[in-house]
Design a protein around this nucleic acid. Sequence first.
DNA 1: TAAGTTATATGCGAAAATGCTTGTATGCGA
DNA 2: TCGCATACAAGCATTTTCGCATATAACTTA
Lengths: 293, 293
Amino acid sequence: MRLIWDDLRTVLMLVRHQTLAGAADALEVNYTTVARRVRRAESTLGQILFERLADGYQPTEIAKVVASHAEKMETSEFDLRRYLQGADSALTGTFTITAPQLLISSFLAPVLDDFDQAYPNIELRVLATNDILDLTRLEADLAIRISRNPGDTLKGLRLLKQETASFASPRLADHIRSHPTDMIDWIVYDTFPNVPKGTSPMFPNNRVRFRFDDMVAMLGAAQAGLGVLRVPLFLGRTTSGLEIVPVLPPQPYSDIWVVGHPDVWPSKKAQAFREVLIAHSKRSRSIFTSQAD
Amino acid sequence: MRLIWDDLRTVLMLVRHQTLAGAADALEVNYTTVARRVRRAESTLGQILFERLADGYQPTEIAKVVASHAEKMETSEFDLRRYLQGADSALTGTFTITAPQLLISSFLAPVLDDFDQAYPNIELRVLATNDILDLTRLEADLAIRISRNPGDTLKGLRLLKQETASFASPRLADHIRSHPTDMIDWIVYDTFPNVPKGTSPMFPNNRVRFRFDDMVAMLGAAQAGLGVLRVPLFLGRTTSGLEIVPVLPPQPYSDIWVVGHPDVWPSKKAQAFREVLIAHSKRSRSIFTSQAD
DNA sequence: TAAGTTATATGCGAAAATGCTTGTATGCGA
DNA sequence: TCGCATACAAGCATTTTCGCATATAACTTA
């Protein structure tokens, strides 16, 4: 019995995605190819691996066992690729980072510019997402994250401390300052559905007016004067049409970290990127806290 | 970077064998294919994996790392294949056993016959070798071994206790019995280069005359009357032209075991083979010891 | 020094794998 | 109930991979 390793990988992907098209996307092949590889695997194993149903391929118990072993193989592949990435001393090729969308324009854009100037032969790929990408699976080489915790197995470096404050449109800000005891409307994030704690006693009347699940939309609502917003200082300060209001005094917030997998961390490209990143962080420290205000 | 798993396996084989032809044999492909796959792997990794020398492909350090990861993948493959083998409840297909050559003709042949009669749809493959095959790598499904110890991770079942005794050609045996104090010539195995311990006091004069590294040759030499031989009872008894001589009284010897990997052990085919094996062992017990003499 | 052995390299035709296209079934929603 | 989207299946053409035959280089040995 001579198993084809790439057929095992194909079975793994089909078990994960349950449809030929899904597995084919993951493998970057035509879905017909997935179907044929699976048929071939079934015939060499002498076992039926999937039930062909109208809504996809349903894995049998045996297929799940096959997939679990293929998953171990995949882990070894990722281990290898991370090793190679870490050992790579070239300042050429591609380099992938990920960061929350809102950090890009206000903070990261100059870093990308500096890096591209300094290392024109490195093709920088930026994944702007709030999803926590899996650095173990090399979804990115480095991640910039807003979190006190760099993650379990990841190496991390704290770039910046930061604080939050309350922001509002200039009109609303004026009104609040001149009528501090009026009811103040808040725009809050879905996951923190109440008025932030720690509001100043000078502004005793607060209520939630809107809840959003998207920060960009919240900023838009605040720009339109719909309410007061609690955001990191850098974000409020770099968003036009917003100014700080003293309703909520500056409070410490999760720090900004650059994190990476220990295997990949020592690579020349990662080193280079961190240098540029740290230099820029030092320069822009004042945007993130009220200290230097 | 999209690595082809079977290319990694090819690199592993080439690191192991160091020549295209050797790796190609192991993979059962043409050696040209090995060369091409390795080139492809090198180009996708962007790394040179082997130095092409006159006497073969010399792996670089990176190739060794690649191979070590591919080896983990291979381990997972064997784990899977053993699992599938163990879960296989069919009494069809091939089944592989291994045993020392000398056990085959005298002891195992009837078992093979019985098994083939009882399970004509199973194609039995017999690897007659003194090498200890690696059951973890599925080089065989079951092994019949002469050893007190069934092995570290293997499951085992003791089939037979056995004893050794001294044998000689009829002519020599006659002479020894009639002239017990004459010098007795021994034919011994290279790894036990002295006269066996425990010779009877009735035959005080013993010396080594020949050392061999091959048991078949030793039996031939004994048949030709060149000396006395210590062999397991079953072997002396079933070899024509030899008879037992009382120089060395029967002594316990390593037992005969059937061993298998725990994963494969419960498979229907392995169960079936063990049943036939055990039945035959019980019937032929008397050949192996002096008890029933 | 010439023949033989053991390596790798390369060109060509056969075989295999792959992608594309068309056809069919099923479920969802206007 | 009629698209519409999503799934798989199957046939055909293309591309890729593979094996064979041949050539070349290094080393051994008579």
